[in-house]
Design a binder for these strands. Structure first.
Length: 557
RNA sequence: GCCUUGGUAGCUCAGUGGAUAGAGCACUUCUCUCCUAAAGAAGGUGUCGGAGGUUCGAUUCCUCUCCAGGGCACCA
């Protein structure tokens, strides 16, 4: 009996009761009757507040309605008891055997345990990081990389098709500045006035010299040509390094989308995607001209001011490219488009949403803009100007991918987050990833020792898992599918991390109380064999959960 | 000024209208001849920033307010 099955039973019972009272127009879904794990063990295995929720709507006394429901629930197969408590809670206790079945279910489902088809049929575009290819990824991008990839994994676990996408801002003034900076470095010239700072520019300069033979000669004869060559070579090199860094961070993108392609006309002289996008929106009646500029009326879709597409000097704004990019996502068949942005881009929500509306999409369901707070490091906020940038590669070398990903994914996006390097380096409980990974390694150690002791899973007696810590552990395992579903629905992978910490705790307490391998020369019984199932189930769920966070589950620590 | 996100234990933070508001850290004391002590057990801590409101019930929802971060470009 899982909590989901219990909720379905409750919904059926409540529907019958409401039907018997001849109430009409009141529908009950399993979401209305979702059961909770009570904090207090005396309140049973699962509790429902459905009676209190519905009492008023059908004009009933909450406690009497609860009594009526409880009587029907108590008759359900697998339920040991259902009692009414307080203002109308229904506290449900399961048969030990019914709860214990969870261990076998988890082991048999393996990696599939916790996955669902809740979002089946949804084709989601998940855009995140999208850092300029003019330098290495730093801590500021790292949170979005960890969070975005975990959101994507959770959505996939819920059955959605998800494309991870990185938008490369490879057009415009920043790229030209980048090109000038690298060319100067390559030629050994002093850095231009507004050049990008950083040692990496010098390294890129050296690599560009290797990749573009005769660059110095070319620069002497045709400076613009040399600049173009240097810029392109540096860009390709930097992009490769960004991709390598992300792969080392266990973050994989399906599509790297180049902004430049939006500015490029078609091979047979067709207009560029940006120009085409503006035409499309004009045909829909959303574009107008004023003050020598071309505008889009985003205020029709809730933006606080209209936006410019083409400036007075005839050049497209950055936002025009954003609009064309959105249309590209729409054309490629994506339903929901998710943008994961830092709080410094908060001002973009209104205009991005408006473009979705202008493009004919439903702004409630087809676009989601997730805004996250920026990261601090040891109290000092990161700023390019202050120069205290920590690169992703440095962080990976310093802290390791697992600790970094876990820490960054364990807080809600809108929670301010401080990265304490010393804490993440310390291998203590200050660092929760070790607590969880250790629990997993322990399940593996038990497996190894059980095999050596000749204990296998040839017997399974679910009714024998009755120790207090076993009931707790089973309850936690039963919660997992609901946790994944909730994390997917709310796009909050930190729920997975918090759950894993609770699960690890329940496992450690069980481990301390219930042995899988008998002491000394005691005989091996079916209880030991049954516990091996539970041990393996716990390991499986920790593994499944860590995978959703992109964190490894080592067999030994 | 307007928009937005925070304010919960000494610290870092969980908590999608429910029962006595939780975890880790820090502090004290226990538990390894036996599956990994990177663990477990016990010990106390709160004006949930403040004030109103909504209701059977509010840390959670609404309004106002105080404090803090971020944002309000024909920049990228």
């Amino acid at each position: 009996m899982t909590p989901q099955e219990l909720a379905a039973q409750l919904a059926r019972i409540l529907t019958d009761i409401i039907g018997a009272r001849a109430e009409v127009g009141i529908a009950v879904t399993p979401a209305d009757t979702a059961v909770e794990r009570p904090k207090n063990r005396e309140h049973g295995d699962w509790a429902s507040n459905a009676a209190m929720k519905f009492a008023k709507r059908i004009g009933a006394n909450p406690r009497e309605l609860a009594q009526e429901i409880a009587a029907a629930v108590a008759a359900v197969d697998g339920v040991a008891a259902a009692e009414v408590a307080g203002p109308g809670f229904i506290n449900i206790t399961l048969d030990a055997a019914s709860a214990g079945e969870t261990a076998r279910r988890v082991v048999e489902l393996g990696e599939a345990y916790g996955r669902s088809d809740m979002l089946a049929g949804q084709n989601i575009n998940m855009e995140f990081v999208s850092a300029n290819p003019t330098g290495p990824l730093h801590l500021g991008h790292t949170r979005w990389a960890a969070l975005g990839d975990s959101i994507s994994r959770v959505l996939r676990a819920a059955g959605a098709a998800v494309t991870n996408e990185y938008y490369i801002n490879d057009a415009g003034a920043q790229m030209e500045k980048f090109g000038r900076s690298v060319l100067a470095a390559a030629l050994g010239e002093p850095a231009p006035e507004d050049a990008y700072p950083g040692e990496y520019i010098q390294e890129l300069g050296r690599k560009v010299v290797e990749q573009v033979p005769g660059l110095a000669e070319l620069a002497a004869n045709d400076r613009p040509a040399a600049l173009a060559e240097a810029q392109e070579a540096a860009y390709q090199q930097q992009l490769v390094e960004i991709k390598d860094s992300l792969e080392r961070f266990n973050v994989h993108f399906d599509v790297f989308f180049s902004e430049r392609t939006l500015h490029t006309p078609g091979p047979d002289g067709e207009e560029s995607p940006i120009a085409a996008a503006i035409d499309r929106l004009r045909a829909q009646g959303h574009v107008f001209e004023a003050d020598d500029a071309i505008w889009v009326r985003t205020t029709d879709f809730g933006d606080d001011k209209d936006r410019v597409f083409t400036r007075g000097n005839g050049i497209f704004t950055y936002f025009a490219a954003d609009a064309a990019y959105y249309l590209s996502k729409q054309d490629r068949g994506f339903g929901e488009k998710i943008y994961l942005l830092g709080a410094d881009h908060h001002g973009y929500i209104g205009r991005l949403t408006a473009i979705a509306g202008a493009a004919g999409d439903d702004i409630e369901t087809d676009i989601t803009v997730l805004i996250g707070q920026l990261v601090n490091l040891n109290g000092a906020r990161l700023s390019k100007r202050a120069g205290n940038i920590v690169e992703l590669d440095d962080l990976l070398e310093w802290l390791g991918s697992d600790a970094l990903r876990y820490w960054l994914a364990r807080y809600p996006a809108d929670s301010p987050l401080a990265l304490d390097g010393e804490k993440l380096r310390s291998r203590t409980n200050d660092n929760p990833v070790f607590y969880v990974q250790y629990a997993h390694a322990r399940t593996c150690a038990v497996d190894r020792n059980a095999a050596a002791a000749g204990i296998d899973r040839s017997a399974f007696e679910p009714g024998s898992l009755t120790h207090e810590t076993e009931t707790e552990l089973l309850g936690k395992l039963q919660e997992y599918p609901g946790i994944v579903a909730g994390a997917a629905e709310l796009r909050e992978p930190h729920r997975i991390a918090r759950y894993l910490e609770e699960l690890a705790g329940a496992f450690h307490r069980w481990y301390d109380n219930c042995r899988v391998i008998p002491l000394g020369d005691e005989p091996v019984t079916d209880l030991h064999r049954t516990r091996l199932w539970l041990n393996d189930a716990a390991g499986q769920v920790i593994r499944n959960g860590l995978d959703l966070l992109g964190v490894s589950a080592p067999e030994r620590l």
